[in-house]
């Protein structure tokens, strides 16, 4: 039981797809200006990830090696189109804000990565748990970044005013940088730094080191 649950809990922090594997950064920057878009994107990505992993895991014994990436991408793309259509039908305003980023889930390495690395080799149960865990790990980062950016950038969260801006008679000066893409980089970087300060085992070894002779010269 514990071993099974690890598929779900491992990707949350210990093996988080965003902060450890640095995958899915593009969308994590683009859709985190508000918590609402971050939540919808998280939901869409998690749903696509779980369903694609389940489908690919079911097909795993019959995917010819020569065309396996094509088959995986077609399955993922199909699910992404359906997710996009559903959002346009049931969450029109949010889908307008997410614009092309729902469609770009197809190219999110996280989804193809889990399909290729895990779902093609494992039965459906662990595959779904692994996908769900990774989806939640991605969502966790998006939610943290989205919350920080929305609160500091606008002073409100999900439409509720937390810090009254000066323009409306309060003391808070909204940091407009928080609404721009660079702040996404800063926050994710700080997050990675914080996690790796606590979990030192996540720090990567330098890929290239000067040899002794190079140093001495």
């Amino acid at each position: 039981m514990n071993a099974t649950l690890r598929y779900l809990t491992e990707p949350l922090i210990a093996n988080n797809p965003v902060t450890l594997q640095i995958l899915g950064i593009c969308s994590a920057l683009a859709v985190t200006t508000t918590l609402q878009t971050a939540l919808v994107m998280s939901g869409a990505l998690t749903a696509v990830l779980v369903l694609s992993s389940a489908t690919i895991s079911l097909m795993r014994n019959h995917i010819p090696n020569a065309i396996r990436l094509i088959v995986q991408i077609v399955v993922i793309a199909t699910l992404v189109v359906v997710a996009d259509e559903l959002l346009q039908a049931f969450a029109f305003e949010v889908s307008r804000q997410l614009s092309i980023f729902v469609g770009l889930i197809v190219t999110n390495c996280l989804v193809l990565g889990r399909a290729e690395a895990f779902a093609t080799r494992n039965p459906i149960g662990p595959s779904v748990l692994d996908a769900l865990g990774n989806g939640l790990g991605y969502s966790l980062v998006l939610i943290i970044v989205g919350t920080i950016r929305e609160v500091l950038g606008t002073g409100s969260l999900l439409g509720y005013t937390l810090l009254l801006p000066q323009a409306e008679g309060g003391w808070f000066e909204p940091l407009s940088l928080m609404q721009l893409a660079p702040s996404g980089f800063f926050i994710i970087a700080l997050l990675i730094w914080a996690i790796r300060s606590v979990r030192v085992e996540q720090i990567e070894k330098p890929q290239h080191q000067l040899s002794r002779s190079e140093v001495e010269q």
């Binding site: 995917i63 010819p64 020569a66 065309i67 077609v74």
Partner: peptide, 14 residues
């Protein structure tokens, strides 16, 4: 899985 019929078949059905 490396049989031609299977490759085309899986691609077509997908």
């Amino acid at each position: 899985n490396d049989d031609r019929v299977k490759i085309f078949g899986v691609a077509f059905l997908t």
